[in-house]
Simulated assay, not measured.
Amino acid sequence: MRRAVLTCVAFLLLVCGCASVTAETPSSPPVVQVWPPFDARRARTDHGLVVRARGGTLSRVLVSEGGEQVPGRLDRSRTIWRSDWTLKPAAEYTVTATAQGSGGPDTVAMGRFRTRPARRGFQVAATTPLPGETVGTGMPIIIDFDSPVTDKAAVERTLEVRAETPVEGAWRWVGDTRVIYRTRRFWAPHQQVTVTAHLAGVRGGAGLYGATDSTFAFTVGRGQTSTIDTRTHQMVVRRDGAVVQRMAISAGMATTPEYTTTSGIHLTMDKGNPVRMISPGRAEGEPGYYDLLIDHAVRISNSGEYVHAKNNLWAQGRANVSHGCVNARPDQAAWFYDSSLRGDPVTITGTDRRLAWDNGWGFWQLPWDRWRQGSALPGAGPAR
């Protein structure tokens, strides 16, 4: 009887021993890493903010500065969050990040840090168009900085163009203080465009950092384009595709290069009524000298070309006799003056003098691939 009991006990011990190996090991919570680290007092600005999750995924990241949310985005794995732009100098940032593990507890990391002040700052000095301006469909965006920029790629990455109708465009540098945005095709009419230079904290050169962001918006108005044929002496103005004006004109007499109207895609740049026009390269008393006040003058280049009024009816529609400008009947020139917006395309054909791409706003003279070569970045994306 004793032997039977011992055998039963041994069997029960064997069964219980096998069951004990199935116990689960608790999982570790995910780890959240933040750069710049919490409590930093002089964090760099030009690398932005990065939050990482180890052993889990990020479910929520909230970053604020000065009471405003800092924009950023997660990668596809949801393990890395990056700020969209660089960080402001001499600013305090607050971060709250939550990471989820696989069945274990969440990890919540909270803290703050400060960025270092900029030793030398730069910012936007001027823009074209002006804030709130209504412009034509060929209008470029021109940004001038108040200090020379050497790290052009870093600065160009901060430049954001948002159009209500998306369009492909690219920036082109024309010096250390000026960058120009041109679309591949003309802007769609009747829309608003917003431009933001997210400069705060970006490194523009050795010891040079962006001081502040800058935003402005403009409106693309009706789609007005003009074509001028110097051989037939005619100008046709179309608005949103429909012909709204036909004008007999007289163009440059072409006896010298300076008296030859340039062929190509011009843009209206500014206008005056009147505009004082003085003969280039000639002193008073020399042959060909003139000093005149011209009414209703719309400038289309930097080489003295205008569409303007002149009581020259005997030549208009028949012969080219001007010093390089395009003149029209006074009442029609006044109409064109009143109806023109900066950035309206004016295409001239029929002469052997080509408009240079850097003469005024002759940017449409460059093929798209050549325009893009002036960017500091490997490629140009669409406006959003």
Results as ranks from 00 to 15, higher is better:
S303K: 06
A356T: 00
R120I: 10
T227K: 00
V195N: 13
V321N: 09
P30C: 03
A19T: 02
R114Y: 09
Y290R: 02
R3T: 15
A334P: 01
V326F: 03
F11E: 11
R370M: 02
D331N: 09
G111P: 11
P274F: 02
A90P: 12
W314C: 05
G379Q: 13
D331C: 07
P382T: 07
A97S: 03
H308R: 03
V161C: 12
V51E: 04
Q224G: 02
F38A: 01
R238Y: 10
Y93Q: 13
T212Y: 04
A43S: 14
C325M: 06
K310S: 13
N311A: 11
Q69I: 09
W368Y: 07
G101P: 08
V5W: 15
A53I: 11
A254M: 10
R372D: 02
A91L: 14
F113L: 11
R184L: 13
V9M: 08
V5S: 09
H266Y: 06
V70I: 11
R2W: 09
R353H: 11
A125H: 09
D151H: 15
V61C: 09
G362T: 04
S226N: 01
V51F: 09
A53R: 07
E160M: 11
N302F: 13
M247A: 15
D176N: 12
V167D: 00
R120Q: 14
T25N: 04
P280R: 03
L87A: 04
T349I: 06
L130F: 00
W371E: 00
P129I: 08
G241M: 00
W187Y: 05
F145L: 14
P367V: 00
R299Q: 05
G136P: 10
R73Q: 15
Q123F: 10
K271V: 01
N312E: 11
V167T: 10
T127K: 05
K271A: 06
Y209H: 12
T96Q: 13
T150K: 01
Q123E: 14
G138V: 10
